[in-house]
Design a protein around this nucleic acid. Structure first.
Lengths: 98, 98
DNA sequence: GTTATATATGAACAGTTATTCATATGTGCA
DNA sequence: TGCACATATGAATAACTGTTCATATATAAC
């Protein structure tokens, strides 16, 4: 007999991985791995539309992959969790191996 | 200055994570973590359409997350890579923590 | 208050994707 | 060869998702 996680956990888990399944969000996570950064600097660094960045940051925030803090007019984002780095590293190992 | 992976690597990486971003494929991977299994048994275990399972297995195979071998009329699938297990475990830790 | 800057948000559109159905291919056996 | 079983595949559909544009909200300085 096979011991599957509950449907709820499976949904949560696939929702989590969906976040990593987009190269834009991966780029944002890579940038934040260097340290916290505000929205305009992220947009400039990645040469992306501010609105697109903001939409993606919202998803990352809701799913607790990043933290946000306000400083004056700016919002600074940072990685929330060491798992983020581990998951990306494992994935990178996989694709680079062969 | 930030050291981003190449665009190609980022695409490969997001494509890899997309595979984990679907609860059907996660269920298949969980089942295969118990050991190799053929397509009909996977379909029965997960109460899924045979065609749907086959389509998903094809994606997993193309992306080298599973191996396939034929035995008579049946095709037996198994996990291809220890990274699969590590990635899922890290994800599960993340969602269960809080 | 007004204005400028920074970020967030809603709606719309285009592109992608999982599932289903029907059918094809492959294998074993009589 | 013919038939049954196992799996794969192509097309169609429905649902989802990322980006853009326009605009709203928030903060600071005046």
């Amino acid at each position: 007999m096979i011991n599957l996680p509950s449907d709820e956990d499976l949904m949560d888990l696939s929702d989590l991985f969906k976040l990593f399944g987009d190269s834009t969000r991966l780029r944002i996570l890579y940038v934040l791995h260097e340290g916290e950064m505000n929205v305009s600097d992220i947009s400039d660094t990645l040469e992306m539309n501010q609105s697109a960045v903001s939409h993606q940051l919202k998803q990352l925030r809701i799913n607790k992959l990043v933290n946000a803090r306000r400083e004056g007019k700016s919002m600074y984002y940072s990685l929330a969790d060491e798992h983020v780095h581990t998951i990306i590293s494992m994935g990178m190992e996989h694709i680079l191996e062969e």
